[in-house]
Nucleic acid binder design. Sequence first.
DNA 1: CATGGGATTGACT
DNA 2: GTCAATCCCATGC
Length: 212
Amino acid sequence: MPSPHSSATTRALPADLFSRSVHEVAPALIGAALLVDGVGGRIVEVEAYDREDPASHGYRGRTERNASMFGPPGRAYVYRSYGIHALLNAVTEDEGIGAAVLIRALEPLEGLDRMRERRGLERREDLCSGPGKLTQALGIDLDLNGSDLVTGPITIEPPPADWPPIELFAGPRIGITKAAELPWRFSAAGFRSVSKPWPPGLRDTVAPRALS
DNA sequence: CATGGGATTGACT
DNA sequence: GTCAATCCCATGC
């Protein structure tokens, strides 16, 4: 429920944010608000996939499935994982370049009742603690592949000013076998909603970067 | 054309 | 800890 005096909730992301390097966009999205029709929360975990990354869907070029990854920045790349789950990415960098940020976890903040209905679960920390869980909780499916992340229905906005600052961690990505050593997973410290805990000794703090 | 693996999750031993 | 659910795509014959 944004008050008319709260510029923080209506402030836009930098217009060119998604056109920047995926390695800049990924940590910048930690802490941002992700919403679909009033349901969503704060992004607490992401991973970066760049054009030269063997683990990226874009690595071997454009296919029917990954076409939106090569489209304009600031769009959604939604694909079906393991034949079952829909996973959400934010497309980055110039059109023609396959690079995207996988959204891996949210801290649920808005519309928790609808999340619980869709997920068939009660516990808050289980609602959005994984890339397939958050898409189910927010009702994101393949029909939103290619949709605009600024105009919606899926929107990503900067964190409202009254949300506390976040301590950012970087570490290895999850669930991949190729290029698994690259520290391109980013998460917010102190949230139970991250999809998996950090292995001890495999994390480093990163200075949070302002969205400007 | 057949096969195998994957940016996952939930149920089960 | 193991395993099955099941779609897209890469690889190899």
